[in-house]
Write a protein that binds this DNA or RNA. Structure first.
Length: 468
RNA sequence: GUCCCCAUCGUCUAGUGGCCUAGGACGUCGGCCUCUCACGCCGAUAACAGGGGUUCAAAUCCCCUUGGGGACGCCA
């Protein structure tokens, strides 16, 4: 039998990293078992749901390439089905009308709390046989005793006394269906067989199971993935830094790195750390999902991103790079940069950059014309004294005289001959050259730098030392 | 308060009773490589929360304690 999973976010904000991980696991569960992965937007809270949030969520899903099957289901469009389901429950005596006001219910809760009991509605309207009326809600007539148990795909056996549960509201006084009801009806109608969701839903699960049973529907498998913590072991929140998936994109992370990181946070496959999308699908199993909360570690994400930066096709990175460069350079300046130059620069930066942001920052020094390239004062002071300036200028002359191809090995041969003729160490030439060429004491290799810069630009930069 | 869940290096984790003097990865520290910085390679550092059981044998099973978290809405 083919399985069906789903991701069901409520569109009250961007997709955060925890939600993305839940979505990823659901997606992986479906893909790994040849099933279908569906997307449902739980937008029944009209106050807080926005189309912008929905769009942001879809955008994040696309960025991570978590493709879903079929059309997106909007829960708000399914009110009719929900209400029809509620009606069948009323007819079968599994639900009842309740006339208690929110204030009355709150008072019951207060009292229960004061008596050391679990705060809940006391069921006083259960047997009153009320019908519809203004201000009335429909409640589920839950079992008073017994326990509801299920085997959680990640947490194992979970059992709750039915007495702990209260008669949840199914239909609000304004006639709208509530979350627990809507989820069950939707999941059933969508054919969902496996529900993987956040830990915060464990407490809802027994209530939902009871609803499935009341409807006489097959109960799906449930699994609750532990949440993500900040470095202080508190629930990950804004004060810990970036939360939104798209913020990671803006910071220069690659989607495959974020996916790999998220997958390994709370899931493992032996000692393997690096997983391609295909490997993830091949290896994924809920068996290996961890059951304790995990701390989000930006450093490990960075390391992974660095790994994927090295692996990536230069052409792809170069295309991505242009966008990040717009933060480093003037638009006009950037417009003049040929894509071919970006593609030549990218491989030099790939082993050095952890993120696209890093890369853009480093790339800048290859892309601006000599007069506009700033010098790092400290580097100049350290490596470009008068004697070294002369050395650089002499090298420039030698470079100009060099007629052969402008490839790394030719340039290296030239430099070696140059130092040999003067009987100086190569090192004595390297740093002055680097500072003259790049303005800094840190850069990619000298010869690859010159090759990418080209003869003309290299000479311009070297001879600029006279201005110092 | 009540209920539910969780607990291996700083962090992510391997571990499903003997292969564990606890493995890998990130980080950190050292070294090698080297034209700088990275990359890469090599090495080091560091953990079974505590206490009781069960067993020939426990990181692994049970109980308690402690510590964390979650839930208790006419939100989702």
């Amino acid at each position: 039998m083919s399985i069906v999973t789903r991701f069901a976010p409520s569109p009250t904000g961007f997709l955060h990293i925890g939600g993305a991980r839940t979505a990823l696991f659901s997606w992986l569960l479906a893909r790994s078992r040849g099933g279908r992965f569906l997307l449902r937007i739980e937008d029944t809270d009209r106050e807080r749901s926005t189309p912008e949030a929905t769009e942001a969520i879809l955008q994040s899903m696309r960025w991570l390439d978590l493709e879903w099957e079929g059309e997106v289901v909007y829960q708000s469009a399914r009110a009719e089905a929900h209400n029809a389901a509620i009606d069948t429950l009323i007819e079968s005596g599994r639900a009842y009308w309740c006339s208690c006001s929110p204030e009355e219910v709150e008072a019951m809760r207060e009292q229960a709390r004061a008596e050391g009991r679990k705060p809940k509605y006391d069921g006083r309207c259960r047997e009153r046989g009320l019908g519809p009326g203004p201000g009335r809600v429909v409640r589920f007539k839950g079992p008073l005793e017994g326990t509801t148990a299920y085997k959680d795909m990640v947490k194992g056996a979970i059992a709750v006394d039915n007495a702990e549960l209260d008669d949840m509201i199914l239909r609000r006084s304004d006639g709208s269906p509530t979350y627990n009801l809507a989820v069950v009806v939707d999941d059933h109608d969508m054919g969902v067989t496996h529900v993987l969701r956040g830990d915060d839903h464990v407490a809802n699960t027994p209530k939902q199971i009871l609803l499935y049973q009341a409807f006489g529907w097959p109960v799906p498998e449930f699994g609750h993935v532990p949440m993500i913590l900040g470095p202080d072991k508190k629930k990950l929140s804004k004060r810990h830094g970036a939360l939104s998936v798209m913020e990671y994109e803006k910071m220069g992370y690659l989607p495959e790195a974020v996916m790999n990181y998220l997958a390994r946070l709370g899931w493992s496959h032996g000692d393997q750390e690096i997983f391609s999308r295909e490997e993830l699908i091949a290896c994924f199993s809920t068996e290996n999902l961890g059951n304790s909360p995990a701390v989000f570690d930006t450093q490990k994400l960075e390391w992974l991103n660095g790994h994927y930066m090295k692996q990536a096709e230069p052409v792809r990175l170069a295309a991505l790079l242009r966008e990040f460069l717009s933060r480093e350079m003037e638009p006009a300046e950037l417009e003049d940069v040929p894509q071919a130059l970006l593609e030549a620069v990218t491989p030099l930066l790939q082993p050095r950059a952890k993120t696209l942001t890093d890369m853009a920052e480093m790339a800048r020094l290859f892309l601006v014309d000599a007069p506009f390239l700033p010098f790092d004062e400290k580097a100049v002071a350290q490596h470009l004294g008068e004697a070294n300036k002369t050395l650089v200028l002499e090298f420039a002359d030698a470079l100009e005289a060099h007629a052969g191809p402008f490839e790394e090995q030719d340039l290296e041969a030239l430099a070696q001959a140059f130092v040999a003729a003067r009987n100086i160490k190569f090192k004595a030439l390297a740093q002055p050259l680097r500072v003259a060429l790049t303005g800094r004491s840190v850069s990619p290799g000298l010869f690859e730098t010159m090759r990418v810069l080209g003869k003309e630009q290299s000479l311009k930069r070297l001879r600029r030392v006279t201005e110092l």
